[in-house]
Amino acid sequence: MKPPEKNEVKHFRGNFSLFPVSMAVLGLSFLVFMFLAPLGTLIYSSLNPLYADPAVPQRLYDFLSSGDFEAFFAELQVYAGNPMPAAFQDEVLLDALRVSLITSGASSIICMCFGLPLAYVLARCDFPGRHMFKTLVELPMVLPPVVAGISLILLLGPNTPLGSFLEQVGWELVFTWRGIILAQTFVASPFFIRSAIMSFEEVPVSLELAARTLGASPLKVFRSVTLPLSARGLVAGWAMMWARAMGEFGATIMVSSNVPGQSYTLTTAIYWKFWAGGVYPSIAAAIMLLAVSFAVLLTVRFLVER
């Protein structure tokens, strides 16, 4: 009998089954309602200010009814010409973006330098308490970031032994941009470490042993065998970690001094803008964060898939 050729393979239409259809319906509806709808609305409201600020029609009506036509036209002018482009040029927001990029970049570098060895040790070395340490490393993922903030303040705050020593040296950590880096590293590094442990564990030990018998020193084995084979997981985990650091809020707001341009990240900017003026002023910061994070994740996915 002739083996079936590739294009002879029966397609989906050929044998209709309810299962894939229901899976697709459930999955896609989740995608639409949980992710696309909220984020889409965010983007839509940045294009259509009237949607984001429901008080506007009321205000316009009030102006009209009170006969204050001057105020009415001024308001109308503001919202007819979209003020969003101007919001993106807000100095405070641009500074916050800069701080966010620098601090999250720094914490991802710290995580790479120290988290990578930690993950390797936890994946490869067998020692008592290993599983407890693996769980400990994952703990910040489920812990409310506020708890991280409290812990860091208790350890490094101004009235603590370590904190006052650092203050004397002139290296205060908490309530400065350094504190933000610390908070982001604490909260976000588990995303990298967890993924790194799994990637290292997936590299068969026999490959490393074979490389050793072929004359490679442990460092060379790591560089030529372990690292290339776990690269995908490392890069993916690193991107997740970075994005998480970028979006970190709970711990950041507790350990930062919220001085614009110094320790004012995009996430805290969203928060302060929201408190100061409601949803509408925070849209620009939210969009900025969304765009940067999405771009980075997409780039990494593209690199990893390739």
Partner: peptide, 13 residues
């Protein structure tokens, strides 16, 4: 001393 492993341990990359 060289070794041929049971799973052959060829470097897949």
């Amino acid at each position: 001393v060289s070794m041929v492993f049971q799973d052959l341990a060829l470097f897949p990359h």
